[in-house]
Structures are given as C-alpha cells and as structure tokens.
Write a protein that binds this DNA or RNA. Structure first.
Lengths: 351, 351
DNA sequence: ATCACCTGTGGGAGCGCTCCCACGGTACCT
DNA sequence: AGGTACCGTGGGAGCGCTCCCACAGGTGAT
C-alpha cells in the first residue's frame, strides 16, 4: 500500500488544485466555475472547463460535504415495512415523482424504510449524523415521533399528508375532502340515496377529511347523515370486508358504498358478493386512489384519483426550498407551505 | 450567518477533539475506540465511551470519508426501468435480502435505477465520483457495458447472474440448470412424455442454462429431444402466450410445458385455455421463480423456487469481502467467487 | 487628480476525521 | 545491568474542498 503522504498522488483522481494548475488559475476560481458562480469572466470559465474536461475531473463529494457542511442528498423515509411499500402502488408512484423531479438536480435520493424498531433506531442514528440535507416523510400517523426528532435535529422535512389541520411542517396532500365529496356526489347523481362509508385509519388526518367530505356532501344534498351508515376501517382489505359485513347487517337497505381506499373497496366487494348483492345493480361501489386494483377489479371500480407522482414532485420542490432557505427557524412559518392538489373522479362500471 | 471560523463552534455537533478532551485522552485514542480497534486498554475505552455518551457524539461521515477514502456505502444497481422493478417480485426479494444482510453493518445501501439513457449517464457520473465503495449488479444482459465501466474505475462489484460461463466478476446465482432438470423430471415422473419448453431471453445466461437442464433431463431419460418442442420466449407474459400458441400448432400432441418464468407460464396458460386444453388434465404446466403469480394462478402453478433473498445476502457477503480485500486487481481472480445456490421444486395443482 | 466602488481573482484557513510516527512504559530475555 | 520487544498512547500531517479576505485593476463620480 502506498504511504500516507503519497496517497492517491499519481494514479488517483485529479483534484481542484491540479485543475487550477492546468488552467493557469487559482483554486478559488476553479471552485467558482464548478459551482456555477457568475463572478467569473467568460475566458477564464472556458479555460477551466477545458482543463476539467482534459483531466476528467470529478469533484470529491466527501471533501465538499466536509467543507460546505452539506451532503447534497435527501431521504425518502417510509415508516412502513418494505412489504407494504412494494404492495401499494402509492409508494412506487411517489418514488417515481420524487425521482423525476430530482434528476435535474445533483441531489441524491435515499430510500429508507423505518418499519421495525430496529430500522427506526438505525434511521435515528443516520439522521443524528446529518447524512442528508432534508427528509421526505410519507404516510405518517398522528402520533409518530419522527417529525419531532427531525425538528430537534433541525433537519428540513416535508410531510406527504398533514397530521392535523394545524400541521407545522410543510406538507403536500391531495384534496381528501373534495375527493370524498365528488365520490358521494357521483353516487347521488346516479340516484343512490342510502350511501354508506367505510373509513380509513382514524388516526390518519386524510381519512378524517374524507369522512368530512362524505358527511358534508350528504348534508348539502339534504340527505340524512345517518351515523349507522359509517363504519370504521383501516385501509386494508380485511377491514373493508368486515366493515361491509357489519354495514349490511345494520342497514340492509343501503344502495351504495364509498370506501376510503381501493383495497378497502376490494374487501367490501367480497362481502357484498358473499351476501348475494350485485355490483352495481344492487349496490354501487366507489373506491379511492385509482390504483391498479381499481382497473382490474370485477367489475372495474369507480375511484378517486390522486395525482401521486405530482405530489412527489411538489414535495421535492418544497424541500429544496426549505433547504435553500435555511435560517433561524423562528423567523419562518408564515409562508404558505401547505400544498393541496386536486383529485379526479374516474367513473367505471361499479357505479 | 456565523463567520467561517466560528462555524459550528458552540451549538454544533461535538467533534472527536471534544470527546478526547472530555475523556482526558488524545484524538487518536478516541478514533481507535470509535472504530473498535483492539489496541486500547479497557479503562481508556470505558472512559471514552462515557464521554461519547455524555456528549452524544456521532462521527462526521464526510470527514471520515475524506480522510479514509471510503464512503461506507454500496449501491444496488438495477439496469431496468422502475416499473419493472416494482412489477417483479424478484427485485423486491433481492432488496430485502440485501437490506437484511446490511443491517448489521454500518454500510449504507443505495438503490439506483439505470433503465433510461439519462439514468445511466447519471450513474456513470456517480460512479466516477466514487460515491460508493462497491456495486451490486442485478439482471445484467450479456452486452451491458456497466461491468466494464466498473472494472475500469476499479470499483468492486458483484453480479447476480453471470453473463457467461467464463464470468470474471464475482457472482451469485441459483442453479438454473438443476432447477430446470428438476422441473422436467417432475413432469416425467407424472407420466408426461412430450414436454415442451418456452425459454427466457436468449441473451441471458441463466435462460441458456435452463435450456441445457431441460435438454439433459430429457436425454438422460432416453426421450427424444425434439427441437420442435422448444420455443423462444423473453420472460414476458406476451412471449409466453405467443410461444405456447406456436407450440400448439407445431406439436398439438404435447402433454406438458416447462416455462422459463412464472410470468411466461401465465401467458402460456392463457393460450392453452383459448385452445381448449385443460390444466393439468390435458397439459401439465411448470413455471420458474415461485412468485406470487404462481400461488394465485388458476390452477395454482407448480414452480421452481429460487432462494432470492438468500442470493441477496450472499451477494453482500461477496461484495464486502471484495471491498475488504482491495488490492492490485492482478493478483486476484483465482479464488472461488462464483456462488451457486440450490433451487427447490414447489409442486402445485398445475402438474 | 482624488476618492469610492465595483469586478475578477488568488490563496490562507479551516471543516473533522484517519493514518502513521514517535515515545514512554512495562515485560521478558540475555 | 543492558538490550529487545511490544503495548498503549498522543498528536502532526494531510485528505480535497469551500469560504472568505485581500488585492489589483478598472470605472465613474466628484
């Protein structure tokens, strides 16, 4: 092995210093060119760029990170087990949007799962080491301690669904309230009057907003908002099946169901089928997410589409702004940092 | 903003130096403790560990990377578009295995897609900057330039399926030959005699090995190896459908099919159904991979299981060894670095 | 002519770590 | 007693960058 002093001397990668020597300028000037500073004359810039090309110079990330105290990396943190990540198209769409928005940047994206305690501990360690400049948090429950940890470490973060109406972190969400309304209004337009709702996890703010939208749509149409028509679910298929079974028992006369997710709707469909109800003849069904499940269901499922990829892009937007704006946290927080994107109802045969 | 000199002085994260002062030892000693060197007395170690705990010290990764010329990160490179990554359980299983093996380490895993030209260029830049200590390459085709690039940059790499019998990179693979044999032998044991094969992509070495296994199993059983019973596929569903249709035309008397993947088998099943053949009564069907598709098919598909998670673990094993062993490339290459793992036939109703 | 103020540039200092050399101390031989 | 070996330890030098200060030279106002 080469001695310490000679480490990487001759055979190694070229350094800023070597580029500077080759271009006949100082180190600082090369740094300016590399980082796109405008304070460089055109001629000098050209000379430096030529030297960079000739030597095949690539900046040393570690040195830059050390000197500038930044990492040029952001993490997408998924507080779920990997299995759910792969099972739900929501995450892959989000990843795609985030990745697309990042290709124009020199930012690196890290995908981190924090489903188990073990993984969460590792993540905490990782964040404590400030190995990323910012964090994207998706699918966070109301009582998750992660946002507080991030605040304490002063790491910029953006959340995909606000935890409450008073969310302090910047967030991007789809219009859960409006989406739910459009689903219920669609069902009413089809002549349905006894419309049930199987909710999502009640500790998820978005699920609450969908309930609100459901209630308000009925109320505004002058229909009785019978609480017996609401059944708590949890976004899973099994939750949908059980909820539907209970609803059928309580209100056998229902003629439509709005499920808080496509997966929930799939469970509901199963229970309806077991009870001998036809879709949509006896009971109309509408889901949420417009995932692959909706298209492949039998019959194809009417669903509320969220622009998930776009949400991913906007999250990156917000995060990069946060990172760039880094300044005393106190002076912030007044700007509009809560983005809400519109949903779209996709009608299919189930309603 | 604080002046440069004072950057991170008071409020910032503690440094090695501060830990050393607190513990009443020198910088070098703290470094030794942090890195688990055995050359530290028990008393000193305890003192340092106490100081680390009290100050909440976390090493600065960038400084370490700069000084030690390593990154403590490895990349899992997927030379496919993201969509395929999420569609095929192969990748997620691999990721899970790799991730599991890495949790005991302080190594960071990066997931990098290199499906488009744009992404590949970004990857090249990334590798040129030596931002990872090693690379895991999955699903590489025979003519992919990536392995050469890695060799040129002298970045340790492990490949998931050898590109040829003379693969120079360390590799981990399942026993494609044996797996194919077991499938064909299983069909013969069930009394089938006219067994067809729909192959995988012919530029994938593993697909070739499956063909070899198929041929040899038939030959050893004294059956004619009729080339008319072999049809080229490409691992896709559509390829399976087309291949099956052609086979039925050419050899309407066939009584079994071995498909090079479960997805291919799904396509074949469709063609068989359209032709009015019953599975397994008229034609027995065996797939490869034992993915979720196999379990959910109607009828459930007999399939050859590969220990994909385990393959991921072994790949990491090999890669970490490569990284640790880093020495002039010339003196290497003699050790056994080609790992082959056994497969297992999972019989179900389709055969 | 003097002053103020730009713009472009060079290079010192410093980021926080690892690596290695040097050194004092102890143990074991001759 | 002297020599040799090793162990544990401290700290200098250096990794390759960014940040900032200083400065030369130009420009325009006074």
């Amino acid at each position: 092995m080469a001695s310490h002093g000679a480490r990487g001397r001759s055979g190694g990668r070229p350094t800023l210093e070597e580029v500077a020597a080759r271009a006949g300028v100082g180190r600082g000037t090369v740094s300016r060119v590399i980082n796109g500073s405008p304070r460089v004359s055109e001629a000098t810039r050209a000379a430096v760029e030529a030297a960079v090309a000739e030597l095949g110079y690539v900046p040393n990330t570690a040195a830059r990170a050390l000197a500038a105290n930044r990492t040029d990396a952001v993490a997408l943190v998924v507080p779920e087990p990997e299995t759910r990540f792969f099972a739900e198209p929501y995450f892959s769409d989000m990843l795609r949007g985030v990745g697309a928005e990042l290709t124009d940047t020199q930012m690196q994206l890290l995908l981190i799962f924090a489903g188990s305690d073990r993984e969460r501990e590792r993540l905490a360690q990782y964040l404590a080491a400030h190995r990323v400049d910012g964090v994207l948090l998706v699918s966070v429950h109301a009582d998750d301690p992660l946002p507080d940890l991030l605040a304490q470490l002063e790491i910029p973060a953006v959340i995909s669904g606000p935890r409450s109406a008073g969310e302090t972190l910047p967030s991007v969400d789809s219009d859960n309230y409006g989406g739910a309304r459009s689903a219920v209004e669609h069902l009413m337009a089809g002549g349905r009057r006894r419309i049930a709702h199987i909710t999502g996890r009640l500790d998820v703010y978005g699920a609450q907003r969908r309930i609100d939208g459901y209630r308000d749509a009925l109320r505004d149409a002058g229909l009785d908002a019978d609480e017996k028509l609401i059944e708590a679910g949890d976004f899973t298929e099994e939750g949908g099946r059980r909820g539907m079974a209970r609803l059928l028992q309580r209100r056998p006369d229902l003629d439509a169901v709005f499920a808080a997710s496509d997966v929930t709707a799939a469970g509901a469909r199963q229970a309806l089928r077991e009870a001998g109800r036809r879709i949509p003849d006896d009971v109309a069904l509408v889901g949420y997410d417009d995932s692959a499940i909706a298209r492949h269901m039998d019959p194809p499922l009417t669903s509320v589409r969220q622009p998930i990829q776009q949400m991913g892009r906007r999250m990156i937007d917000l995060l990069l702004t946060e990172i760039a704006d880094r300044r005393p946290a106190v002076s912030r927080g007044l700007e509009r940092r809560q983005v809400v994107l519109a949903t779209e109802l996709v009608p299919r045969a189930s309603s």
